[in-house]
C-alpha cells in the first residue's frame, strides 16, 4: 500500500531537544579549507608564545629547584602574591562587576568616552599606572595628601597599595569581558523578567547575575591571572618589601640580580600557578560567553 507521498507525518516531534548542546566536536564534520599561508605565521606566533617558556624550563636547575622554590623568600612572596591577587580580584568584582553592568545596560552620558577610559589601563605601561596611582594616593598626591593630613593614612609601601595597583591593571580585563558577555546575552531576559513584575534589583540578582555566571568565571580568572603577574605598577606605587609588598614577580626581578637560578625557579613557580589558574577556567575563557 502506497503511503501518501507528501504527508508531513503527524508523529514528527515539533523540534527535538538537544540535551548535549553544541559543545561536542563532530569528527564527521568537514570545514572549508584554511588558506595554507596562514600556517606559517600561526606556527611562528605559537612558537613566540611557547618557546620562551621552554627556554625557561631548559635553563632551570632542576636539582636545586625544590630547595629554591621553597626558600623563605619564595614562600613569603608566593603567599603575598596569592593573598593580594585574591583581594584585588574580589575588589575587581565588587567594583568592576557593577561598572560592567552600568556600561552594558545603563545609558550613562558619554558612554564611548567612559569605555575608552576603562580600557586605558590595558594599553598603559603598568609602571605608568603605578606612577599615576602614586600621584593620586601618594603622600603628596591629589587625594593622598588629605588622607595623610586628616586621617593619617598613607597608602604607598603598604599591602593595600599592592592590591590597588593590581586592581588598577586587572579590572579592565574583568570589565571588558563581563561587558562583552552582557552585550552578547542581550537584555531580552531582563525585559521579560520586568514584565513579570520583578523589580530591577530582583531582576539583577535572579536573572542578570545567574546568566552572567559562566562569563563571570572566565572574567574573574583573567583578572586574577593579571593581578598575579602584576609588576610595574606595584614596584612604582607600593615598593618592594619582603612579606609586605614584594610579590612573586618583584622577588623574581630582584633575585635575577644575584641568583639567576633562583629567579628561574621562581619564574617556573609563577608559570605553574598561572597555568593552573588558566587551565581551571580554560573552557569558558576560550569559548567565550555562550
Amino acid at each position: 500500500m502506497a503511503a501518501a507521498p507528501s504527508s508531513p507525518g503527524p508523529l514528527r516531534p515539533d523540534r527535538p531537544s538537544v540535551p548535549f548542546g553544541r559543545g561536542g566536536a563532530d569528527r564527521h564534520r568537514t570545514r572549508a579549507a584554511l588558506p595554507w599561508p596562514l600556517w606559517g605565521p600561526a606556527l611562528a606566533g605559537l612558537g613566540l608564545l611557547v618557546l620562551p617558556v621552554l627556554g625557561l624550563v631548559a635553563r632551570a636547575d632542576w636539582v636545586r629547584l625544590p630547595e629554591l622554590v621553597t626558600s623563605d623568600a619564595a614562600l613569603t612572596a608566593l603567599g603575598l602574591s596569592l593573598r593580594t591577587a585574591a583581594a584585588s580580584t574580589a575588589l575587581c568584582l565588587l567594583l568592576g562587576g557593577p561598572l560592567a553592568v552600568v556600561l552594558a545596560r545603563g545609558r550613562p552620558p558619554g558612554l564611548r568616552v567612559l569605555r575608552s577610559l576603562v580600557l586605558l589601563p590595558l594599553v598603559l605601561p603598568p609602571v605608568v599606572g603605578g606612577l599615576a596611582l602614586l600621584y593620586l594616593l601618594g603622600r603628596t598626591g591629589l587625594v593622598g595628601r588629605y588622607l595623610d593630613l586628616y586621617l593619617g593614612v598613607r597608602v604607598p609601601f603598604t599591602t593595600t597599595a599592592v592590591v590597588l595597583a593590581q586592581t588598577f591593571v586587572a579590572m579592565p580585563f574583568l570589565v571588558v569581558s563581563l561587558e562583552g558577555a552582557l552585550r552578547t546575552a542581550g537584555d531580552r531576559y531582563e525585559t521579560v523578567a520586568a514584565t513579570l513584575g520583578a523589580r530591577p534589583w530582583t531582576v539583577f540578582w535572579r536573572v542578570t547575575v545567574p546568566l552572567l555566571l559562566p562569563g563571570l568565571g572566565s572574567a574573574v580568572v583573567l583578572a586574577f591571572a593579571r593581578a598575579l603577574g602584576e609588576f610595574g605598577a606595584t614596584i612604582a606605587f607600593a615598593g618592594s618589601l619582603a612579606g609586605q609588598t614584594r610579590t612573586l614577580p618583584l622577588e623574581i626581578y630582584l633575585q635575577r640580580e644575584s641568583d639567576v637560578d633562583g629567579a628561574v625557579a621562581l619564574s617556573l613557580l609563577l608559570v605553574a600557578v598561572a597555568a593552573v589558574v588558566v587551565v581551571l577556567a580554560r573552557p569558558r575563557a576560550v569559548e567565550g560567553a555562550r
Binding site: 601618594g138 618589601l241 626581578y253 630582584l254 640580580e257
Partner: peptide
C-alpha cells in the same frame, strides 16, 4: 626601610616623587 627596591633608580624615584 619602607621598601627595598630592586635598583637605585627606583630608590631615587621614590625620593623625587616625595613618597
Amino acid at each position: 626601610p619602607a621598601s627595598e627596591e630592586p635598583d637605585v633608580k627606583s630608590v631615587l624615584g621614590k625620593v623625587v616623587a616625595g613618597e
